[in-house]
Amino acid sequence: MPDTADLTALAITLKLAGISTLILLLLGTPLAWWMARTRWRFRFLLEAVVALPLVLPPTVLGFYLLVALGPHGPIGGLVETLGGRPLAFTFTGLVIGSVFYSMPFVVQPLQSAFTAIGQRPLEVAATLRASPLDRFFTVAVPLARSGFLTAAVLGFAHTLGEFGVVLMIGGNIPGETQVVSIAIYDHVEALEYARAHWLSGGLLLLSFLMLITVYALNRRFRLAQP
């Protein structure tokens, strides 16, 4: 059976994934919208930056974030000057790391959903008196709903499984920054295979259920559209 420490790690993991996904949706939606519609010739540069976490070893990303967030880094230093705690080895630091780490999993599905809508429905809405913001919320968002679902679930699920970045910038402070993936690693190190099984199995089941939901719902959305 998982003990209290394991349950705390699970709670921190879910909280981290939830908050990160929320922030990613808020930041990623306008970014994806802009990337789907801009004719800026250097758009590919931004696309490459967003996609970097897909190929970069998490430890590399984690290392740079650690440097940036630490007391001598540009962000950590700034926060400290303003009277805050340094961000490295805190939950806030983990959220920042997760946002970078899971960015492509949210932005890319949204961008392709927005691209797939095309120009036409928005033009139709414009001729029906809808302002640009109105068009975005009443046409683009509902038509891109399967993209939002995919983005939210992939962002959430990917943050659940995060290991390298968390280890680099969060450390392994039980009750504060210890997430499930690291707890599993600790259990294996300590040869507590039974507890590692509980946590691994739980994470496996959760991830699988979420993906099933996405694919089933996306199928329904597709059936509802010609």
Binding site: V124, A126, T127, P132, D134, P142, L143
Partner: peptide, 20 residues
């Protein structure tokens, strides 16, 4: 004037109804 401020009706070649 942007399109949404013009009092016009526009029928496109394909009906382009909102599927949602």
């Amino acid at each position: 004037l942007p399109p949404h401020r013009r009092s016009l009706g526009y029928v496109f070649q394909e009906a382009s109804l909102f599927t949602h």
